[in-house]
Design a binder for these strands. Structure first.
Lengths: 231, 231
DNA sequence: CCTACCGATCGGTAGG
DNA sequence: CCTACCGATCGGTAGG
């Protein structure tokens, strides 16, 4: 009952609301997330839930932030130990695929879902989703440019084109898993990444003029947590 | 007031409801499509609208059918004059990209949006969306297999992999247009398709063992309504 | 095709 | 954090 205790409790309650919200919104969408249902599942009153955020939109933005923390921990941070450039790009793509394969969010990629839900509705939520995609593409683009500059990818490689195609592979995988329950699509996604980023592990790239330096070569392992791709 | 007239009127009303529904659902989603809003926009009563379908789910299924007719006319039919195999696959991909570029549905690809909206909710709508994607992938796969069998694509080409990658390019384009308003992404999508299906225009294929044997094929024009891709 | 209505649920507020 | 409540809107039905 002391003020100190109350603050800690409030933060714990807020965190609990957000965790439940992420799970709910992943399946039902950020708009399908309702204060009433949250309150019921958390055994709280609606006003108790809403008091932590002030409005549904503020809750949605907080949920987006929480989902961003999870994405960062699952996809971005595993790639930090890898050397910038091609090596990091490979770990990044594998962690990204693994994040979908392991269904970190039961509804698939939280941000792809949010993008589809809000791309037709102006507002703060839509802007936040767009900003996150901009930042993510920028990060990927930065690694891709570094890989090209270092000669790890063909000098003719367009980093923007590469990032666009990687995004497409991940989106197609997300779609295959969520709509069709097709886990075999992960093999397609991995093969697509390998075609674009080469397949070797720990070997120097072959110096040649061709588009890819696909060496002779074991598949990606670093950062992999899912099962190995089928032969 | 005769029975004949009533039937014609009813069909006209039903068609008007569906057209309005497609436009609304493209932006708001099939679940965001509400009977009340439809009734207001059509200057009808709610029960007048609902009477044509019986339930919201039946309306959603009818809307999906109507959207399918539009997709068929915009993407599939333009490809029918082309020879089966690689030529048809090229026209198909160009019509598909053009369909997104021209924003035939203001909310982007109707089925990609519906897939994201319903992939987490069991039911007839979800099943209908899944069946449509199955059929579409089957059609693309059939053309891809024919192209491989005819030697228009490398014998090593995996049709399933090709279809997966084409779907990814289209989904990345849809995302770029709808979330980022980025029309330049159409160039990335077209370049991705050309990398996979060959680029030349009216030139004989280079006979080599490489992945693509891009035939002596005119570039896509049939069905193209958008601007030419940038150099 | 209409009016009139049903119970349920929505986001949010008043007041404590 | 609660109870109690607001107006609006939801899908759907009764009865004509």
């Amino acid at each position: 009952m002391s003020p100190r205790r109350s603050v800690a409790d409030a933060l714990g309650t807020r965190a609990a609301i957000l965790d439940r919200s992420v799970a709910l919104a992943s399946v039902e969408g950020l708009e399908g997330l309702t204060i009433g249902r949250l309150a019921t599942e958390l055994a709280m009153s609606k006003s108790g839930v809403l008091g932590h955020f002030g409005s549904k939109e503020a809750l949605q933005l907080a949920v987006l932030d929480r989902a961003g923390q999870i994405f960062r921990a699952e996809v971005w941070e595993p790639a930090l130990p890898a050397a910038p450039g091609l090596a990091r790009l490979r770990v990044l793509c594998e962690a990204w695929i693994s994040y979908l394969e392991r269904r970190v969010f039961p509804g698939g990629c939280f941000f792809v879902a949010a993008a589809h839900e809000f791309d037709g509705r102006p507002g703060a939520v839509r802007d936040a989703v767009e900003a996150r995609f901009d930042a993510w593409r920028e990060r990927l683009g930065k690694e891709a440019r570094r890989a090209v500059e270092a000669g790890e990818l063909s000098a003719g490689t367009d980093p923007g084109q590469l990032v666009f195609e990687l995004l497409g592979l991940v989106m197609a995988l997300n779609h295959a898993i969520q709509l069709h329950g097709d886990q075999r699509a992960t093999a397609h996604a991995r093969r697509g990444v390998q075609t674009r980023l080469g397949l070797e592990e720990g070997r120097p790239p072959r110096r040649r003029r061709g588009p890819y330096s696909a060496g002779g070569i074991t598949p990606l392992r670093a950062g992999r947590t899912g099962p190995a791709p089928p032969a």
